[in-house]
Nucleic acid binder design. Structure first.
Length: 305
DNA sequence: TGCGGTAAATCAGAACGCAA
DNA sequence: TTGCGTTCTGATTTACCGCA
C-alpha cells in the first residue's frame, strides 16, 4: 500500500500546525474500501453467472487456489495476519487450508443463525450492465463478512503506512524549519550499521538522529493518539533523546521528563516549537522560525520530496 | 525475483479509577 | 450511578531482510 506524496505532505503540514492528521487517512480508507466493494460486487455477478448450477459457487470462485493468498484469506473471512498468528506461518498452502476450514465454520454458523432467527430474511440484488443476480441470505452474509474483513485489512495497512511514511520527512521538516545545520542531523541508513561486527548494541529501526559533539542522539516519532502507553515505552527501551508524538498523556510526559527525554506534543498550542527546547538541551545551533508557516512548508517540501 | 519471517507502525474496545 | 479519561490487550498492515 502506498501513500501519495501529496497525502504525506498534507499530513506533515497538519501535524506541524497542530491539527489532526487522521482525516487524511480516514478519507483514504473510505475511498479504497468503497472502490473494493464496487469491484467485489462486480466479481460476484460474474462469478454467479459463470456458475449458474453450482451450489457453492462462492467457494469455487473466491477460494480458488489460483488467487493470491491474501485474496483467498480475505474471501474466506480471515485476515492473513490472523493466519500467521494461528499457524506461525503464512505459506500459501497453509493459507489455503486455513481459509477453507474457516469458510466451512463460517458457513455453518451462518446456517445456524438463519435457523435461529427465521423471522428475518435478506436478499441482495446486484445489477451489472443490466443483468441482475440475487444472493440469498447466507450468500449475502458471506459477502458482508468479506467486506468487513477487507475493511479491517485496509485500515490496518493504511494506518501503518501513514506512520511509516511520515516520520522521516516530518523530522526533516522540523530540522529545516529551525535551520538546523545539515551536519547536525542524519537519517539512519538501514543496513549500513548492521554490518559493523563490533556493534554490540544491535539496533532496531531508528527513525532519525540529531548529532552534536560527535554524539548521535536517537529521535523517535510516533503519531500515537491517546491510550497507547506501550508506544511510549519503546522510547525508553531505545534510549532515545527526542520523542515526537501527536498526543501524549500527562503520565507519558512525567515519565519522559524524569528520563530526561525531550518530548514534543504536536497536538498542542504551537506544539512544534517545543523542538527548540530539544535543540537547546542537545547543544545544537538553530534559528527560531517566524513568518508564514505555509510558505515555509512549501519551500521545505520542494527540497525534501 | 519472489517468498516467508520479524520488527514496527497504528487503531479499537474492555477494564478500571476518579469525580460530579 | 453516570460519564470521562487512562491503561492494557489484541487486532491489522507494511517495510525490511535473508534465502532459494
Amino acid at each position: 500500500m502506498t501513500l501519495t506524496e501529496q497525502v504525506t505532505k498534507n499530513i506533515i503540514s497538519r501535524l506541524i500546525k497542530g491539527q489532526d492528521y487522521r482525516i487524511e487517512v480516514v478519507a483514504l480508507i473510505n475511498a479504497q474500501f468503497l472502490q473494493f466493494a464496487m469491484d467485489f460486487f462486480e466479481k460476484i455477478v460474474q462469478a454467479k453467472l459463470r456458475n449458474k448450477d453450482v451450489i457453492d459457487w462462492y467457494k469455487k470462485e473466491f477460494l480458488n487456489p489460483k488467487l493470491s493468498s491474501e485474496e483467498i484469506a480475505i474471501n474466506s473471512g480471515l485476515n492473513k495476519k490472523t493466519i500467521t498468528n494461528m499457524f506461525n506461518s503464512a505459506t500459501k498452502e497453509i493459507v489455503i487450508d486455513a481459509s477453507n476450514e474457516h469458510y466451512e465454520i463460517l458457513y455453518n454458523s451462518i446456517l445456524q443463525l438463519i435457523e435461529n432467527q427465521s423471522e428475518i430474511d435478506l436478499t441482495l440484488t446486484i445489477k451489472f450492465r443490466g443483468v441482475s443476480v440475487e444472493l440469498n441470505i447466507n450468500e449475502s452474509l458471506i459477502v458482508i463478512n468479506t467486506l468487513a474483513v477487507k475493511r479491517a485489512a485496509l485500515r490496518g495497512g493504511l494506518w501503518s503506512t501513514a506512520g511509516k511514511k511520515v516520520e522521516k520527512p516530518l523530522m526533516q521538516t522540523l530540522c529545516m524549519l529551525f535551520d538546523v545545520p545539515k551536519e547536525n542531523y542524519a537519517i539512519h541508513l538501514k543496513g549500513a550499521k548492521a554490518k559493523q561486527e563490533d556493534e554490540l548494541d544491535f539496533e532496531r529501526e531508528i527513525d532519525f538522529y540529531l548529532i552534536s559533539n560527535g554524539q548521535n542522539h536517537k529521535c523517535e516519532v510516533k503519531l500515537m493518539g491517546k491510550g497507547n502507553p506501550e508506544s511510549a515505552d519503546a522510547v525508553i527501551a531505545r534510549d532515545s533523546k527526542v520523542f515526537i508524538a501527536d498526543k501524549l498523556s500527562d503520565l507519558n510526559k512525567t515519565q519522559l521528563d524524569s528520563l530526561k527525554v525531550n518530548w514534543i506534543e504536536l497536538r498542542s498550542e504551537n506544539g512544534y516549537q517545543r523542538f527548540e527546547k530539544a535543540l537547546q538541551s542537545l547543544g545544537i545551533s538553530y534559528n527560531k522560525f517566524s513568518g508564514d508557516i505555509d510558505n515555509k512548508l512549501t519551500e521545505i517540501f520542494a527540497l525534501i520530496f
